[in-house]
Design a protein around this nucleic acid. Structure first.
Lengths: 345, 345
DNA sequence: GTGAAAGCGCTAACAC
DNA sequence: GTGTTAGCGCTTTCAC
């Protein structure tokens, strides 16, 4: 079946008034039907729907947005990267937005762009959105924008002046703590940390979780090595770490770096897990299939996106209701074979 | 600095008429300035800009879209997956769309959704977009929609009735052919293929490339094993393939499956590359760091996205001009250590 | 070069 | 339950 769809000045698209004429009702009644408003008799509703179907009517969202001041769309600001974490979060957000009956607008921020998140948010506001999701932002200094739509920040402290700034943590510190404690429980004297870039809040949270685990157990805190999330940076860090015979356990801030790290370790003749245990973070789909299969911590991306969007949509639609209490997703440590007790050497 | 931005019925946002009053010009002149129309004196332009700045004016895109019938936005239809290929393409598209001065709307199609791509396209049209990008679609049968905006299809045959359907191939068949020929050149009698799900055009193209290489060299065409892009499916395929001692070289349709395959091979006691050579597809960032480092073929995602968007934007803005000839991005085979000549056994 | 008037296709507010 | 009347903030058309 071939249906005609389209939009544009001369495109002879039927409008609600045309539907009204065919159905023999007023234009406003057509509007009522398409907005599921009450007080429309079942009979009228049926006639309107039939007429709309017959004409191939589709509502013009621009006109609706102009008249109502609402767009039924949500904007998301992401880092423009195909990294597993941010990409998964984006897919989760898309799904949750669609399920809530909203449209999605996406703006990426570019690393090093002076406008950064602030510019991205302004461009979304200009486009017209009812709410904004900021996904895993990096710290760009105090670049506050006053926005009058609700803002949901995923994986960072609230940093925007908005009527409602909602935050859903990825519970990264708890997850990082669990990873570190797993290594400690195995009998390692201490745990080294291959951190993510500290401009990312997500990276800081993981570092905090690692540090708090070490402190809680009264262990020495070795110097932190910082990577940039990439396997290359993990590899480079691994070359340094491999030279240090005191290193028996490393917690990497993501799986990509963990894989690079392991490669460097192996090339330096240090076996994993016999000589050095490694735990990653994210549970990328490949984690179970690299050599050795990677012990890691699963990030509940979908749950975070869903949970967050529930808050955001409520803030948009019922601004006065109290936000429901946030439910922290469960910590999931996936133990595979890249970790083992230290072998006395 | 805290700037007030926002939109909405009661939000006391300044409009172009306010700017006009402050600048002492007509509302239409403000419109001219913001649309970079000619015939505005430099002096007037400066005054308008100053007034806008003073009031914190931002144009209302919904009103513009309603009046002009154009939205300056582009919609993209993607599969909702964080797989490296689709995710990279999406990021490339976002960047290219932003560079062209358009906004981006995203709709995912869900596997198994009856509406599928057709429904996604209709929802974009309804939202109002000036052009549509369909990224790596799967074959859903003939579900044609007549759309009156230009459509760009990335990585599949044109399948939509639209004023302009543009296609930019990922040249997947040429790339797959190069991968296969690399293995043949190494001295392997033939090459097995671990294919992607055949509903994806991208998977079919790779299979075609593999097949044509085999035919061109007069080699036997072994039965195809089909996976679903995931490492798990590669692993399962690997268990079957490992049992067959005739298998000395495998071309996997993506890197994730290649990694799963290698793991299965190793577990079955077959060494890579000594007993079996493996080449992947995509060059995921991890490819150089897995064990053994993966020989693979690099997909030029950014180039494809940029190239495609150039076509699309031209089709939107200058519908009558001839589309510039498509430039095929170069084939890049990355040889690492998962491939080697067969060892006579 | 600039301005006045008339919509774009909807929703809001209120009448009936 | 349903219709009427005004806009929403821009662009278009055409006059000057």
């Amino acid at each position: 079946m071939t249906r005609m769809v389209g939009r544009g000045r001369n495109a002879a698209m039927p409008r609600s008034a045309d539907v009204a004429r065919v159905a023999g009702v007023s234009q406003k009644t057509v509007s009522r039907v398409f907005n599921d408003e009450p007080y429309v008799s079942a009979d009228v509703r049926r006639r309107v729907l039939a007429a709309a179907e017959e004409l191939g009517y589709r509502m013009n969202h621009a006109a609706r947005a102009l008249a109502s001041g609402r767009t039924r769309s949500i904007g998301v600001v992401t880092l423009g990267t195909a990294l597993y974490g941010p990409a998964s979060l984006l897919m989760g957000v898309e799904r949750a937005v669609r399920d809530a009956g909203y449209a999605l607008r996406v703006v990426n921020t570019v690393e090093g762009d002076p406008a950064g998140v602030t510019g991205a948010v302004e461009s979304l506001i200009e486009q017209g959105v009812d709410g904004i999701v900021i996904s895993e932002p990096i710290d760009e200094g105090a670049a506050a924008v006053r926005v009058d739509v609700p803002v949901l920040v995923l994986g960072a402290p609230p940093a925007f002046a908005a009527p409602q700034v909602l935050t859903v943590g990825v519970a990264a510190d708890a997850l990082a703590r669990a990873a570190t404690e797993h290594l400690l429980a195995l009998g390692h004297a201490t745990v080294h940390h291959l951190a993510g870039p500290q401009r990312w809040y997500a990276a800081r949270d993981r570092l905090d979780g690692w540090r708090s685990a070490l402190r809680a157990h009264g262990r020495a805190e070795p110097p932190v090595v910082e990577g940039d999330w990439s396997a290359v940076s993990g590899y480079e860090a691994g070359r340094k770490l491999a030279a240090d015979r005191d290193v028996t356990a490393v917690f990497a801030a993501n799986d990509d770096m963990a894989v690079g790290l392991i490669r460097a370790l192996l090339e330096a003749g240090r076996r994993v897990p016999e000589d050095v245990s490694v735990v990653g973070f994210d549970d990328i789909p490949l984690a179970a299939y690299v050599t050795p299969p990677l012990t890691t911590v699963r990030q509940p991306f979908d749950a975070v996106a869903q949970e967050g969007l529930k808050l955001l949509v409520q803030a948009i639609e019922k601004p006065d209701a109290d936000p429901p209490p946030a439910v922290d997703p469960p910590v999931e440590l996936i133990v595979r074979t890249s970790t083992a007790p230290p072998t006395g050497r």
